[in-house]
């Protein structure tokens, strides 16, 4: 039986999602998509200008890839909802990643506004994937609000610091019955691998690939790391000891008599 990532009514074979920000050239994107094997790609739609005749990043995204427009630039629920509706009207489909960020220093998301936007948009038939800090209460409210997945951060956006929030991520993975897509902060493939070993449903990587010296090769490395981590999770790792244990000081006596 194949191990598929299920989000809403769709199934995906790979578990690495990629972004389109911070690339020198949108022309790189098809190569990054190919080497990453990603089947879902995020796109920012901050200022949609229907009259603009200029080049659009979406011209570089091939057919068959699930587009995930994001509400990057939204500072509150109202702006996020407006961007989502614009994206759908533009023909980007009905999937939406909610990013509501009013903090310009750390770029941390506003959980309260994210829940509000999710309620509204899920009610309008969107497939909603909200980006949040790994707050269990916010995640539970998102489940009630109709989110299709949750996207908790590993570390602040662009920081490349890895799973700084791992303890909280473990709790979310344990408690939330939706795919958990670790998003933000994954700077190295080993970090994405660890997220998958922990039981995450998928990982989203943008800066970690875009800022690499060779993004196409790094995308391939991330893809392999995500696949390896998933396999490890499914294989069920052996129990590990906190300390070395050469003998059984407390229970050894139970077996000493038998050997006599």
């Amino acid at each position: 039986m194949q191990d598929k990532l299920k989000i809403a009514d769709q199934e995906f074979s790979t578990r690495l999602l990629i972004g389109t920000g911070k690339y020198a050239c949108d022309e790189f994107i098809p190569d990054i998509l190919a080497s990453s094997g990603a089947e879902i790609i995020t796109v920012a739609l901050r200022r949609v200008d229907f009259e603009a005749t200029v080049d659009n990043v979406m011209y570089h995204i091939p057919e068959g890839v699930q587009l995930l427009p994001n509400t990057s630039g939204a500072r509150n629920a109202q702006e996020a909802v407006r961007i989502a509706r614009l994206a759908r009207a533009m023909g980007c489909g009905n999937w939406i990643k909610i990013e509501v960020i009013s903090d310009n220093k750390y770029l941390l998301p506003d959980g309260y506004e994210t829940v509000k936007a999710t309620e509204t948009l899920a009610g309008e038939g969107f497939v909603v994937l909200p980006y949040i800090s790994p707050d269990l209460m916010v995640a539970r409210k998102l489940v009630e609000a109709g989110a299709a997945a949750v996207m908790p951060l590993g570390a602040p956006i662009g920081s490349n610091r890895g799973l700084k929030t791992r303890e909280l991520l473990k709790i979310i993975i344990e408690e939330i019955p939706l795919p958990v897509i670790v998003d933000a902060g994954l700077g190295r493939p080993s970090q994405a691998c660890e997220a998958m070993e922990m039981g995450a449903g998928a990982c989203l990587v943008n800066t970690g690939i875009a800022s690499a010296a060779h993004p196409v090769a790094m995308a391939r490395a991330f893809a392999q790391a995500v696949a390896a981590g998933r396999q490890a999770f499914l294989a069920g790792p052996g129990a590990s000891q906190g300390t070395a244990r050469a003998s059984s000081p407390l229970t050894g006596f139970l077996y000493e008599e038998q050997s006599v």
Partner: peptide, 9 residues
């Protein structure tokens, strides 16, 4: 700079 802006000018 690279983390925040990628390799872009």
């Amino acid at each position: 700079t690279v983390r925040n802006f990628g390799r872009t000018i």
